[in-house]
């Protein structure tokens, strides 16, 4: 069962574990420093006003950092394909929940935040101009 296809590590001690994959120390330290650097970058870049792009960049950097953690700290790069599938699959399900809810909220935002629908507003103007909701006019 133990997979012989593990890529060979370069540290030269020849102390391979019985099972699993040994990630060289240099890779771990490099990944750690890279993550710190990216943290500094993400704090710095927020000072630049790019409008809507700010959150996109922040999330892209965060996703890149998370990928580094997964691949090197969590050994996912050398792990079984099903473990990789389980991890990324679960993220897909989160996105599914997020997407459908956002679609729904987006629709409601249009109907509620955009003020009363025109037909309703007409009725309100004619019949109940003093009702609080009548002031919520469409923009």
């Amino acid at each position: 069962m133990s997979s012989p296809s593990h890529s060979h590590s370069s540290h030269g001690h020849g102390e391979q574990p019985l099972v699993g994959h040994l990630v060289p120390m240099s890779t771990l330290i490099g990944t750690g420093l890279g993550l710190i650097l990216l943290t500094v970058v993400t704090v710095a870049v927020v000072e630049v006003d790019l409008g809507e792009l700010n959150i996109v960049i922040a999330l892209a950097i965060a996703a890149f950092k998370a990928t580094l953690v997964c691949l090197y700290f969590m050994h996912l790069r050398w792990d079984k394909p099903f473990n990789q599938l389980m991890f990324f699959g679960s993220i897909l399900f989160v996105l599914l929940l997020m997407l459908f809810c956002l679609m729904d909220v987006g629709q409601l935002r249009k109907t509620i935040r955009g003020g009363n629908p025109t037909g309703v507003q007409a009725v309100l103007d004619a019949e109940a101009p003093t009702a609080p909701i009548a002031k919520n006019k469409p923009q």
Partner: peptide
Amino acid sequence: FLVWGHHMFVSGQSGLMGAV
């Protein structure tokens, strides 16, 4: 996992999502 909104057809879900 893709059908949960059919419990919410009349509870304030938007029309689009109801249809989907």
